[in-house]
Design a protein around this nucleic acid. Structure first.
Lengths: 253, 253
DNA sequence: TGTACATCAGTGAACGCGCGTTCACTGATGTAC
DNA sequence: TGTACATCAGTGAACGCGCGTTCACTGATGTAC
């Protein structure tokens, strides 16, 4: 929602700038296409240039090196998955933490299944010889902040039902939890923060196992399993009263 | 525990065969070393040969192709992680499911941290252009069977404390669970099987996030967090009475 | 509105490199009698 | 124990390929006056 003035100031002014923005996009699109059919290590500047009808050296007007192009793709992937999570959560502010948790979880999984190589680029094995620069940190945390926000808001509204049972937390872990709470889930007690971290790793653990082939021959009802796991983690976080979960068809993908 | 006759029949008889076995091992060792410093895609037959003082074509006496060598490394990695799990569980048969679960979980994580690139080879993004042949299936399931065995034996001994609360399971998921129970955890009810699948993905989800860099700047007390998560999943499986878990120092890595 | 200059995009050739795999070969090791 | 032949390991040259990156260049687009 920019003002007209801001829009014209950030939008490309000259024809040259417009063409440049367009071609930058086309290069990334073609690179993504190559990513989809062969993974990060088979992404080649020459092949991208060839496919776009350019000479390979021309790409250096747009990206300083192959690693720069890779970084742009990584940032885009983080941004895309973050946006998918934000979109799924938009307009659901406040009340029903359980429904929000399920909606965001399913949105993350859906994006991952639709973009398996981009998912692998950011959540798979690190690309050998590639060091992620700092500019990836912000986009990387978007999706995590959506999940944390759900817990934080449920807590702020007093909707978090704390689980019974005293689970002691080791000192160092407790400090981490307090730090994380301050950053992303203000006021949320350490026990819940730790449980949120478990839910976070649970979610991505399932999605990664699915996409990386470890469920083949093991599980077939992948949708059901994921939904079940999301309901379980929602309950373990206190986003939902444990007795209230019976049907797995509450949220349909 | 072979008989002497079997041993002599399977052991290399001639000098040639002994040298061949030795060199095969050396090739894989060197390949592993290259894996450790650059990932699967930077594994090169020529570089391996160079390092061993051979000519590159000589490797084709030992492995029919680069993919064949990669397959051997994958099988070895699965076998190594499976053996690590089995070793940690050896001699603990029967009684204390919680302790076994923790010991095996920590052993898996320890192996992964000591062999990050081998872990990434099997649990990270699939190697582009490489299709895992059937011979990897057996070794791949070793580690999983150890975990399943702990749950199965706890159940068989009547030590499994079923969690309260009725969690309905979708039909298709229930069928998967029954099939898995038959294969790996006979007699274990579907609810527990599903919870075991969640514990399984939770475990590898944490290890992968750790090794692939997603905990950097988030969590520092990685040991504590993993131990906490393992205790939590053990309790959720009923391997341990929920009230019995207080200290996280029960199992030391 | 028109000119002079600066900026930029894209070209094409080249550098230097490493890769997987094949093939005809030499010489050593193993086997059968 | 000794000889004749078969098997195998390793060599070295070659094929054909693709890659990232640099560089001097041409011609088009934009800017300042």
């Amino acid at each position: 929602m920019d003002t007209a003035g801001d829009a014209t100031r950030t939008a490309p002014r000259t024809a040259r700038a417009r063409v440049r923005a367009e071609l930058t996009r086309e290069i990334k699109d073609e690179a993504r296409r190559q990513l989809a059919s062969g993974g990060a290590s088979s992404l080649s500047l020459r092949a991208v240039a060839r496919e776009l009808g350019m000479v390979s050296s021309a790409l250096y007007r747009y990206f300083a090196s192959r690693d720069d192009l890779l970084t742009a793709l990584i940032v885009d992937a983080y941004d895309a998955i973050g946006a998918a999570a934000e979109d799924a959560d938009r307009g659901r502010g406040g009340a029903d933490g359980g429904a929000r948790w399920l909606a965001v979880g399913h949105a993350i999984r859906r994006w991952a299944r639709e973009h398996p190589q981009e998912y692998a680029l950011v959540y798979g094995s690190p690309v050998p010889g590639y060091r992620a620069p700092e500019e990836t940190i912000g986009p990387a945390s978007r999706v995590t902040l959506v999940l944390a926000g759900i817990v934080a808001e449920a807590h702020a509204c007093g909707h978090l039902e704390l689980q019974p049972g005293s689970w002691q937390i080791a000192t160092a872990l407790g400090e981490d939890a307090r730090r994380i709470a301050e950053l992303a889930m203000p006021g949320v007690p350490p026990q819940v923060v730790v449980r949120a971290l478990m839910a976070w790793t649970q979610l991505f653990g399932i999605v990664s196992f699915e996409l990386f082939g470890h469920m083949v021959g093991v599980l077939e009802a992948l949708d059901d399993f994921f939904d079940h796991a999301m309901q379980w983690t929602a309950a373990s976080l206190g986003l939902v009263p444990p007795a209230g979960l019976h049907s797995s068809s509450a949220v349909v993908t």
